[in-house]
């Protein structure tokens, strides 16, 4: 006893896990929900959606979310605002342009992704400054 235990921390682990999850998404492996956004079907993992979005957390955390494997978002975000958010969830990179920022902001608000909402506001604010 008394041997000094120590921890090896693999600092890339979280980004490596996320990168593998994105590869699973792109190949349709273990994706368990189809999101109909603006009529466009997008496959994803509920676990990733619930981890990243307050809206999906409220939908999938309860028993009601168990059987749901197709989810349409009527009156919800348009695809051009939603798709960048789905990519963000799986890559940590949010692609914004002056043309898409308002749609991404609307989608992030709908999905209750407050930190992304703030980043969109900062981007839009900055793009108006001379």
């Amino acid at each position: 006893e008394g041997a000094l235990g120590y921890v090896r921390e693999f600092t890339r682990h979280s980004s490596d896990v996320l990168s593998n999850l994105n590869e699973l998404r792109l190949r349709g492996i273990l994706t368990d929900v189809t999101l109909l956004v603006g009529g466009q079907p997008l496959r994803a993992h509920k676990a990733v959606l619930i981890a990243c979005s307050g809206f999906f957390y409220s939908i999938f955390r309860g028993r009601a979310g168990v059987g749901v494997d197709v989810l349409s978002l009527p009156g919800g975000p348009e695809a051009r605002g939603f798709a960048p958010l789905l990519d963000f969830m799986y890559t940590s990179r949010l692609r914004l342009s002056p043309a898409t920022a308002p749609a991404v902001l609307a989608a992030a608000t709908y999905l209750q992704m407050e930190h992304v909402v703030q980043a969109c506001h900062r981007f839009i604010q900055a793009s108006y400054e001379p």
């Binding site: 990243c52 979005s53 957390y57 940590s92 407050e114 930190h115 992304v116």
Partner: peptide, 22 residues
Amino acid sequence: HEGVVATVKEAGRSIHEIPREE
């Protein structure tokens, strides 16, 4: 031709925190 992409690092929290089991 894709526009030039500037990357801005956001150091703060990125997503909500799932509440710990009460």
